[in-house]
Amino acid sequence: MSKVIQVLETMASDASLINEENISTFLTTTEINAEQQRAITAKSAGQLAETIADLPELMAFSQVLPADEDAPIEDEQEDDNSASSKLLASSF
């Protein structure tokens, strides 16, 4: 496992790692580099992300629609006849 991901996993699952002192001690036992240690100590997810070359940027939508429609709809994104548009329009 990537060392830094392993560190994040351990920090999230070890109850002893909730105070700064224990975290600092723990970081000295890991094999992550100094930049990553600094980012973790600063609690900067942004800085930490910059240290991982191929970290994907993801979008985190709630997968929920204002008008849910289970049936697959046609690929007519701009078409007013799309299932979701019909449902939404019906409420006005």
Partner: peptide, 10 residues
């Protein structure tokens, strides 16, 4: 479908 890149890597 993960919320961030760290979780995807994990």
């Amino acid at each position: 479908l993960m919320a961030n890149g760290f979780a995807q890597k994990w």
